[in-house]
Design a protein around this nucleic acid. Structure first.
Lengths: 249, 249
DNA sequence: CGTTCCCTTGAGACCGCTCAAAGACCGTGG
DNA sequence: CCACGGTCTTTGAGCGGTCTCAAGGGAACG
């Protein structure tokens, strides 16, 4: 089912390319060593791979090293994309403590994942309270992001939703250095935007057209260009906030 | 602005009435002692009190001891209720680590809150990894609940949403022993249901009528009676799941 | 007995949905 | 090289679910 490839040459944590980004907090040597020991292996999965399903137990813990993923929930024949995950995102925490996953996770692009041994999570808590704190921080941050999404689904119009999600993905990707000259490689289909926003594909498409006509964005060939960020944010009713310096595990 | 009353006679943690409920995990003596020391005081606030606002920093940590609260986010002149909190819910974690709260919290009914000293949170992590684990567990559980809400807002029809939220509140309250003979004291206005579901007040009201006509529920005078839980769940497209045994802090 | 808050009901408008079909692009195989 | 099927995007047409506006009723309270 999965066509995962276990990589022979793991990226050593102390040389993790993500750690060089400003968004991620600096870490002491001993913590990085622990993370290194915590890390089980590193895998590559192709776009479209189901990393785990809603209801799965015994899911490993992952950090996205490269590529994009998304979380998803199903209801009958409909599906909701909960949110998108980018490098640095920590996955699978919910399956801790005999609880099944509340959502599935799929690879949006080809993805490299650091895989961690969940049985060592307890050691992390007892030996490295600082890391334990960071795990909680990541969970709280995830909560924040979900709350914002609830606001979007509950109170924004279709037009605002589409504007918001594009800006949000753009803004988030920018902190990871993925934006170059206001242009972002955005590997998302319109159907996926629709599934994330609770809209139909057709209406999402028509709304995108309006955003293009407004000269707020260009978006084609999997590439998003933000022509006027101020305008886009106004249309999305979004407010800028400093990206917090966040932990990487 | 707040009319909070600090109670002279704090409930001792080892005699906490909530701990006697089956849903809450048993705890060792030393952990309860730590929680007791962690607890700063106990306050009573009347219905309608704003406990904290979105964007607040330096928010204390709370556990709801009795009564109901709700989390909220504003967008212009519209507001979204993120979810409702009942006894045992842990509030304010987001404000940890210099991050502002991502949502406001208000008292739905008169509420008793245990107030904790956030400066001691670090001690909790370093001295009681088990409790630290539980804090994370609570955050992950909160995440779960928000994800389900996202599914509701994104994929359920108005009718399903109303059915779902009533069943969900009913089901959750039941684990706390608040349901007696299929009847629950539900202190929620229709406007608040509407704000939680992203619907207008008018449409929420008409949808409630349909649910009443279907003989699935009775709901008036702040009292909800579930006439046919099977039917209600089917209408809500909800699926039952065992309530996990959860930690209480 | 007036005010206020909440619930209820009706009428009409509009936003977003479904159905349907065509166009664009791409990889594959004949 | 072209034909073909698959996936994704685009566009049109019409329906209906949900919204807004408006007004009235009931209960609680000073």
């Amino acid at each position: 089912m999965t066509h995962e490839t276990t990589l022979d040459t793991m990226t050593p944590c102390h040389a993790c390319p993500l750690r060089q980004l400003d968004v991620f907090k600096d870490r002491g040597r001993s913590e990085i060593d622990f993370i290194q020991a915590f890390k089980h292996d590193e895998i590559m999965v192709p776009a479209g791979t189901v990393i785990c399903r809603e209801g799965d137990s015994n899911v490993l813990l992952y950090t996205v090293l490269s590529g994009w993923v998304f979380r998803t929930k199903e209801l009958g024949n409909r599906r909701q994309i909960i949110n998108f995950g980018m490098p640095g995102d920590f996955l699978g925490l919910q399956a801790t403590l005999d609880q099944p996953m509340g959502h599935g996770i799929e690879a949006l692009t080809d993805v490299t994942l650091c895989r961690f041994d969940r049985t060592k999570l307890w050691a992390l808590y007892s030996e490295h309270p600082r890391l334990a704190f960071d795990v909680t921080w990541l969970a709280a941050q995830q909560e924040r992001s979900l709350q914002e999404h609830i606001l979007t689904l509950g109170q924004r119009t279709a037009f605002e939703r589409v504007a918001y999600i594009l800006w949000h993905l753009f803004d988030q990707a920018r902190t990871l250095g993925l934006v170059c000259r206001d242009r972002l490689d955005l590997p998302v289909r319109q159907q996926q935007l629709a599934d994330a926003l609770g809209l139909s594909l057709v209406h999402t498409n028509k709304t995108l057209q309006r955003l293009r006509e407004d000269r707020a964005i260009e978006f084609s060939e999997r590439s998003l260009k933000v022509l006027d960020e101020e305008r886009l944010m106004r249309l999305a009713r979004a407010k800028q906030q400093e990206p917090p310096s966040r932990p990487l595990i």
